[in-house]
Design a protein around this nucleic acid. Structure first.
Lengths: 215, 215
DNA sequence: GTCTATATACAGATAGAC
DNA sequence: GTCTATCTGTATATAGAC
């Protein structure tokens, strides 16, 4: 797929909030090429071909390769950010709320899009310093913060003894991540089965609740 | 440092087990350039310059850019692998043994070399499938395996109730990793302080031992 | 084996017609 | 704004002298 053939305008997906439709085409094509080839190996030619526009048009909308890359990353980070609201968790029993958070988190970080963006952001972090921060704050930090808020509330209700809620949240997501994310980003294994995910979540919930049990 | 000046032969470090001294120079230079620029942005010119040899010499020792990259990754993975022996852990008290493993693991994955190799391997994993496996098996898997062996032994001695030692090991290293590794590879934060590391280890040890406490 | 010099392709970026 | 055609530098890789 997407061999070196004649490029056709794609309308599979729309990038919202842009002045021109061409800018959306370009951003979508750039995303595809950057995610597939990485920043260094991606070429402006390939992006123009994929977007079905000329390179001149491409440069009319974005000042250069770096700016285009930054625009792609920012747009994707914004898109991938979907937090669980406290209102969704509050009525649930403790263990069930943690399961819900865990599943949401794993769905997020194991999706092909998230893995692809993780790869390029990590690879280019030394050269695009602010993009690493954008990624971290839009994704992992939000999940940890909302979980930390939930844990703090649970501690106030006497369900747990959590002196450092944010660190406990990091422990929880760390336990989940460890199982699958590394193997996924290294290409060693594909997406885990639902049963594997369920087992990992159960174990993490069990260790966290026992680890921070009251008394 | 390392601006576009006259290259000089470096002898800071020796790459062992190579037939020719030039091959060692080349491999060392390639490592430096690949880690700094990433695979896609690195050039054979830059590597030849850094190694203070001509490009023809470079191609006399390695068949091309891909082969050189693979050689660098394999050599580094081999070098970074240093496991804790079971004999070192056996005489220690449980919590102290876990602290020792935790500190060893964090020292390993937070070192500048490990972070640099992680970045390039993750970035190129889709195109160099076997290198992801080499990295995983030489680093994280070994640590988890030896920790799992220790946990299984502890369970046999009645110190813990660990039904799945390997998964428990993954939880432990995941809790530790979560705190720092992501921020480090994203360039959001530098190396954490000793106090931060000590706190993370204490929390992880506490949660794991309570989570898998007997009874 | 190692060099200098070069072949060949393609990169990012732009000029100028429309 | 968008295109075609092109400029200029640099990429990987190699030929041929020593």
């Amino acid at each position: 797929m997407a061999k070196a053939g004649v490029a056709v305008a794609r309308r599979e997906e729309v990038v919202a909030g842009l002045p021109s439709p061409k800018a959306g085409q370009i951003l979508l094509a750039a995303r595809k090429v950057f995610m597939r080839d990485g920043y260094g190996s991606a070429s402006m030619d390939a992006i123009a071909r994929e977007a079905a526009v000329s390179k001149a048009t491409l440069y009319a909308h974005f000042s250069g390769k770096e700016a285009l890359f930054a625009a792609v990353i920012r747009e994707r980070c914004q898109h991938l950010t979907r937090s669980l609201s406290p209102a969704e968790l509050e009525p649930l029993e403790l263990a069930e709320a943690l399961r819900r958070v865990g599943r949401h988190f794993l769905d997020l970080i194991l999706s092909p899009e998230a893995v692809a963006i993780y790869r390029v952001v990590v690879a280019e972090a030394p050269r695009f310093k602010e993009l690493g921060r954008v990624f971290y704050e839009s994704g992992p930090m939000q999940v940890k913060r909302s979980l930390a808020d939930y844990l703090a509330a649970a501690a106030r209700r006497g369900l747990l003894a959590v002196p450092e809620p944010y660190l406990a949240a990091e422990q929880f997501v760390g336990m989940l991540q460890s199982h699958f994310h590394l193997m996924r980003v290294l290409g060693v294994a594909g997406r885990p089965s639902d049963a594997q995910i369920a087992q990992a979540i159960e174990l993490a919930v069990r260790v966290l609740t026992r680890g921070y049990a009251v008394g």
